[in-house]
Design a protein around this nucleic acid. Structure first.
Lengths: 259, 259
DNA sequence: TCAAAAGTGTTGTGAATACACCCATGG
DNA sequence: CCATGGGTGTATTCACAACACTTTTGA
C-alpha cells in the first residue's frame, strides 16, 4: 500500500487556487454584526458572500497580508501599519482552511480557502470595490438563522467563526477588540452581553476586570459629557490575548445562547 | 484604491500546490512523542520532517481524507472507517494553514500547507513509505528544544500544535484520545501528568472525572491481573470533545511547563 | 501480611455570584 | 434635587486543593 505512492509524480501535483475569506465582526446597534458583500462575478454572481479573493503569490507576502488586502479592496476597511497595533483598527486571526472536491463550481480548477476572523470597534459603513457590488453589515442572527443565503460554503465558515469568537471571549480578552483603544468597563461589558445574549452583573464585572491587571490598564483619564458619573478609561495591554480564564469559569457548551 | 482591483484577471489567478502535514502525538515511555519522517526526496532530502504530502484533487474528497491517506502511506498508521469512530484508532483535527512567499524552495511553485493534529493511544512503531525513508517517534521536548532540525517551517507548526494540544487538554476531554477505548482513570491521569509535566492528585482527579458524566461513562467492567486493587474501566462518550472546563480552571498561560 | 494501587471522607480556601448600598455627574 | 450610570461592601455558594484514611487486589 505504501510502495506505490511513488507512482505519483511529484512534478505533476495538482494546482489549486487559494483564496482568503474574511468573517468581519463588529458590535453595532446592540447586536453582533457580520460584513457581507454581494458578488459582482460568477460563480454565485449577485449572491451574498464573505469578502475575500485569490491570494497573489507575487504580491502577498503571506496569508494574513492577503486577507488585509482583500478586506481593503472589497470594503474599504483598512489596516494600519502592523507595528503600531495600538492604533490599528482591525484585529485579524486565522480560523482554518476549507476544501472539498468541487467546493468551487468553476470548471478546471479546485479552490481551497483560508478563513479569517476580523474584529473592529463599531466599524464604519463599508465601501464596495473589487469583486463586490455591494457591501453591508448584517446581524449574525440573520445569517445563522439562514435568513440570508451565502455563496460557496460560507454559511459553514460563519458558523465556525461565531463559535470561535464566543469561545475566545471566554478565555481571552478578545472582547477588547470590539471596543475603541480607550474604553470604559461598561463598554466592554456591553460586548459580552451582546455576544452572549444575556446580562452580565455590572458590579462583579467591574471587580473582575480590575483584577486582570495583566490584560487591561487604567489610563487615569475619565469620560466626560455623558450621562451619570464619569467612568475610568482603560487600554488593553500588549499581552491581552494570552489565554487565561476571563469570565464564566463553569460555562458549559450546550447552554450557549443562539443570540 | 479599490477600483483597480479589476485589473487582476480572475481567470489567471496563481496556482498553488496544497499539502497536508500531520503532527501525530502519542504518549510513550512517560513522555509526549511526535512522529517524524526522514525525507526521501528534494527539497530537504534526508532531513526530518512532519509526515504529509500533496493533496490530490481527484483522489481526496477533502482535506481530512488527504491527511489520513498521507499518514497511512508514509507511516503505515491507519484509520478505521470513519463511522465506527468508537473502534477508530486515531483522532484527527485541523490546526491551521501556513503559507508565506517561497515557503517551499522549489522553483516555479508556491506551496501552502494545511497542518493537522493527530492523536492515538500508544501507537506502534511506524512503517516508512512513500516520501519517507525512515519514520520514528521523537519526544516533543527534543523538537521544541531544537535538538532535531526540521524541514520547511515544520518547527513552527510543531510549536503551534503542542500549544493547541495543551490548551485543548484544559477545556475538552482530548486526553481521552491518548488512551485506549476502555481506560482507567489512572491511565487518563497519566496523560495529563505527562503533557503538563506536573503531578495531578489521584483522589481529586478521580472525583472530578466521575462528576463529568457528560464526557465519560463507566462500563461496569474492572481491570484484572495488574498490581493493586482492580480499577473501573470507562469509555468516552460521543460528546467527549464538547467544550467545558475539565481541570485547572484558574491555570494561566505563562505558568505552562516547558517539561 | 505486606506493598501497591483504587477509591472515600473531610476540611479549608478562594473565586464566582447575588444584591444592598454609596458616589459623582448632567439635567 | 433627582435620574442615571459608576463604583464599593459583604454574605453566600461552590469548586478545587490538600491530605488522612479505607478497600481490594497480587506477590
Amino acid at each position: 500500500m505504501a510502495g506505490n505512492a511513488q507512482s505519483y509524480d511529484a512534478e505533476a501535483f495538482p494546482r489549486f487556487g487559494v483564496t482568503v475569506d474574511l468573517t468581519v465582526f463588529t458590535v453595532k446597534d446592540d447586536a453582533l454584526h457580520l460584513l457581507l458583500v454581494r458578488r459582482a462575478n460568477e460563480p454565485y454572481e449577485g449572491m451574498w458572500a464573505l469578502p475575500g479573493g485569490f491570494v497573489r503569490a507575487e504580491a502577498d507576502a503571506n496569508l494574513d497580508r492577503a486577507a488585509q488586502r482583500e478586506l481593503r479592496e472589497e470594503t474599504g476597511l483598512g489596516f494600519h501599519a502592523q507595528a503600531s497595533a495600538a492604533e490599528g483598527e482591525i484585529h485579524l486571526e486565522q480560523l482554518r482552511a476549507y476544501w472539498r472536491q468541487r467546493r468551487d463550481p468553476r470548471p478546471g480548477i479546485e479552490v481551497a480557502t483560508v478563513a479569517f476572523i476580523a474584529i473592529g470597534p463599531d466599524l464604519p459603513e463599508p465601501i464596495p470595490g473589487g469583486d463586490a457590488h455591494e457591501a453591508a453589515w448584517r446581524p449574525v442572527t440573520d445569517v445563522l438563522a439562514e435568513r440570508v443565503a451565502l455563496a460557496f460554503d460560507h454559511q459553514q465558515i460563519v458558523r465556525d467563526a461565531v463559535t470561535e469568537v464566543r469561545r475566545r471571549l471566554e478565555d481571552t480578552l478578545l472582547a477588547a477588540e470590539f471596543v475603541p483603544r480607550e474604553f470604559t468597563l461598561a463598554e466592554l461589558r456591553h460586548v459580552y452581553e451582546v455576544i452572549w445574549g444575556e446580562p452580565v452583573d455590572k458590579r462583579n464585572f467591574y471587580r473582575k476586570m480590575k483584577s486582570l491587571e495583566r490584560f487591561i490598564r487604567p489610563t487615569g483619564r475619565l469620560t466626560s459629557g455623558r450621562q451619570g458619573r464619569p467612568a475610568e478609561l482603560f487600554v488593553r495591554t500588549p499581552a491581552e490575548l494570552a489565554p487565561g480564564p476571563i469570565l464564566r469559569s463553569g460555562r458549559s457548551a450546550d447552554t450557549a445562547p443562539d443570540d
